[in-house]
Design a protein around this nucleic acid. Structure first.
Lengths: 251, 251
DNA sequence: CCCTATTATTTGTAATACAAATCAAGCCGA
DNA sequence: TCGGCTTGATTTGTATTACAAATAATAGGG
């Protein structure tokens, strides 16, 4: 019934990911029932304890629902806990790009400029120090590269954005850090930027940093919006319907 | 060591909530270690199986981390999965109001106007029908009440907001529906609105509905922002640092 | 034909045993 | 004395078995 590729060991993590991907990819359709726990344990050759553990995790991520004597039924995408880091990671590769990636970029475009604005008002000295540190790492990685292939330290990039969200002082916005990590990973995978774009991107990040350091919230907002717009443009996508304050409308 | 009030039966759900609240309220501090599984099972008088089940749930919600031979240590608030509906529900009562509630309202102010804008562009006929239905229920509940005490159907209110988020067509924004439910619950608990405010609120909701129905995204954005601003004002709070397009800046 | 009781199936809980990981202490040798 | 290795103890992780509880399906009686 179910079987993992031979080279993959049958541990909890792998079986979990295998089943999750089957659901995400639609191999197991919504409302369909999974075999009962004993059948699954025999199928995978693991104990029922482990099967239950895996099912419990799938349940907590919103993939399935369980009831006594009903069994396990698969839930639709609207029940999935997409903001969960693992779920997001699995989904990135699987879900047919456009809608998913676009939703993610829209979310960033909504959240991150506001996060930058709040950070400009609320960041403490540690936040500012850390932010500058991450920027330095990005800058050094670009300088260190030779002219031919420009390399940007993606980890530093991710941490830069995460730090801003933490510095926003908003308990909920801080939570999106993990979400962004997966997003950037996927983004970077798709867009192998040209030299010029990388340099532009670095410059754009620097402008955000400086706006926050100088406590100018509106400028931080606008510049972060610019960073994201560039990313979206580089990916050859476009977002419609997000209302952004722009340069002309500055108060 | 740990003990629930006598009147509460010792089932999984109750022990889970009990431990979660201890952590949220700070009775068990961050980085502190919990007793091992056997000790806990003896303490509560349940099997180790159940204790493990509970701990696994706490882990999935970000409250604790577990390692072999290290034991279970409690994590800080930044690890908590605040967007989880249950976590949010427990937190509402426990966390010292101001920071938590303010974060929640900021999040709504960031997300919901944009959701309304997107909904104006993307809502399908079913969405519109459902939205109008929820509005009708709100209106009827107000009309049905006598002059003395005006009653607003909160469930309809919640569903109204959830429907807009679903109609936004954004996979991630849809996820905030559950978050908003808990938020409104808490909000309503605090603010026993005057008659006038209730009528104003109904009117404000109607204006959002009409903007979405007429596919005017910017108007939907502005009017939703108004709804939320009113709520925040009625609670006697104020948000700073959120950048909103306002009437004067209409493009 | 409808209502009720029984049965069967599936998830939920318990108890026990052992495996695996990891920290700490002790030992040994250089 | 220091560093690395071995050994043991502790704690979580996995497996097995048995039984409880919930509920759908079936059979039986009026």
């Amino acid at each position: 019934m179910f079987s993992l590729p031979d080279e993959i060991p049958l541990n909890k993590k792998n079986i979990l990911e295998y089943l999750a991907r089957l659901i995400i990819e639609g191999k197991i359709k919504t409302e369909e029932a999974l075999p009962n726990e004993i059948a699954l344990s025999e199928n995978f050759g693991v104990s029922r304890t482990m099967v239950r553990d895996i099912l419990k995790t799938l349940e907590s991520k919103g993939f399935i629902a369980r009831k006594t004597n009903i069994g396990t039924r698969v839930m639709g995408i609207h029940s999935w806990n997409l903001l969960d880091e693992e779920v997001l990671g699995w989904s990135c590769g699987a879900l047919t790009q456009s809608r998913f990636l676009l939703s993610l970029l829209e979310l960033r475009l909504i959240i991150e400029p506001q996060a930058a604005s709040l950070a400009a008002l609320r960041a403490n000295d540690d936040n500012l120090l850390e932010l500058r540190h991450h920027y330095q790492r990005m800058a050094e990685s670009v300088e260190g590269a030779n002219g031919a292939e420009v390399f940007m330290d993606n980890e530093a990039d991710i941490e830069f954005h995460k730090t801003i969200m933490r510095a926003s002082g908003n308990l909920f916005i801080s939570q999106f850090g993990g979400t962004i990590r997966a997003a950037l990973y996927h983004t970077i995978y798709q867009s192998n930027r040209a030299t010029k774009n990388t340099l532009n991107s670095l410059e754009a990040h620097r402008s955000v940093l400086e706006a926050i350091e100088s406590r100018n919230s509106q400028q931080a907002y606008l510049r972060m919006a610019k960073v994201l717009s560039n990313t979206i443009r580089d990916l050859g996508l476009q977002t419609t319907g997000i209302i952004l304050l722009d340069q002309q409308n500055q108060q």
